[in-house]
């Protein structure tokens, strides 16, 4: 039997026992609701004692293998791109030194209900397949990296959990409990921060000048402006769906600071308050990749800042198109 070993890597070493060789392995196969293998499923194991994280992904036959893992107890999670599969979580999985723990996972059907044309993961795969991204140096503009281009706005493959204050945790439970029927998008409103629609089967187009970065996206609103002309935030900005963004360079990294959000938008499905303050550190790693580290700081909703790591891929064969949400027939939304 063909076994493809996907190399796993330790993100945070913490109190890792690698040196002593007290490590084990987690391996298995990930399938969908019908039993078909799920390729490229991101598998994450978090050590319950040290917090160290081991990550890997399934091969084309759905198999994965995480090794070496310091012996201990782990929380395992798999989160596929929105929304074909429900996320998977299994707590307290023991990994013993010198042994391989088998954990096969059957992912349940997700919120997109397998609707034709509504699986961002599938769409991303199709888009990737037709791209020919040349190997070139990162283009520069006025001495700084130029982010201009059409990007496949991937979500965080290994998402962290936000530490929610009680009201926010309750609001989230209600959203999950009613099948997300009140999601802004179901009313043709923007959904997702800091760039709306970056959660779905959407593309984002960046247009950069030395003093302004424009983000065009395919959702209500359609654009963000990131001012790089040295202006400050307004003292009391009117709350809006995308906030007020200013950008400053830190070497070759653009640091974008955004305030002035309303409390109506959802971060994916997570609630927030008007106190939300978002920082994005954007770096063009190479010609074809944009790495974005997002920090959501909201003392009105989170007890500690929440982070996302986004990796956008250049999509030179695509373009954004006008997207007017005109026909969301919400009358069928009756909840669960």
């Amino acid at each position: 039997m063909r076994r493809i070993v996907v190399s796993a890597w330790v993100v945070t070493l913490g109190t890792v026992l690698l040196a002593q060789g007290a490590t084990g392995t987690l391996a298995g196969v990930v399938t969908g609701p019908t039993g078909a293998p799920v390729p490229d499923a991101p598998v994450q194991a978090k050590n319950r004692q040290s917090g160290a994280v081991v990550r890997g992904a399934t091969a084309s036959d759905g198999r994965y293998r995480l090794a070496p893992m310091p012996a201990g107890s782990y929380d395992i999670s798999i989160t596929m791109p929105c929304c074909a599969y429900e996320p998977f979580a299994r707590q307290d999985v023991a990994i013993a030194a010198g042994q391989t723990r088998q954990l096969d996972v059957r992912l349940a059907e997700g919120a997109s209900f397998n609707t034709a044309g509504d699986d961002p993961g599938e769409l991303a795969a199709v888009i990737r397949k037709r791209q020919k991204v040349p190997s070139r140096p990162v283009p520069r503009l006025a001495g700084k990296p130029d982010f201009s281009g059409v990007w496949l706005a991937n979500e965080d493959r290994y998402p962290e959990q936000p530490a929610l204050l009680p009201w926010a945790a309750k609001a989230l439970q209600e959203r999950l409990g009613n099948g997300l029927k009140d999601a802004p998008h179901t009313q043709c409103l923007p959904q997702g921060l800091p760039t709306p629609a970056s959660i779905g089967p959407f593309l984002a187009k960046l247009v950069q000048t030395p003093s302004l970065l424009v983000v065009l996206f395919e959702d209500a609103g359609g654009f963000r402006q990131i001012f790089m002309d040295g202006r400050a935030h307004p003292e009391d900005p009117d709350p809006s769906w995308v906030g007020h963004s200013i950008g400053k360079w830190d070497g070759d990294t653009l640091v974008v600071d955004t305030i002035g959000y309303n409390d109506q938008s959802w971060i994916g499905i997570v609630p927030h308050s008007e106190m939300l303050h978002v920082t994005e550190r954007i770096r063009r790693r190479d010609f074809g990749h944009l790495d974005i580290r997002v920090t959501f700081n909201d003392p009105g909703a989170f007890s500690t800042p929440w982070h996302q790591t986004l990796n956008w891929e250049l999509a030179p064969a695509e373009d954004v198109v006008a997207y007017v949400c005109e026909n969301n027939k919400a009358q069928h939304l009756v909840g669960r």
Binding site: D75, S77, T79, M80, P81, C82, C83, E86, P87, A89, Q91, E109, A111, S112, F113, T115, D118, P120, E155, D156, P159, E160, Q161, P162, L172, Q173, L176, N178, G179, L180, K181, A183, H185, T186, Q191, G192, A197, I199, G200, D219, I267, G268, I269, V270, Q308, N328, H332, L333, V334, G335, R336
Partner: peptide, 24 residues
Amino acid sequence: ALAALMFAAAPGYAHHSFAAEFDA
């Protein structure tokens, strides 16, 4: 805690809610 894990996908959850609309 379980719910927290289940919405680990939060940032990428849904731009609409077929689950609220249709019955598997």
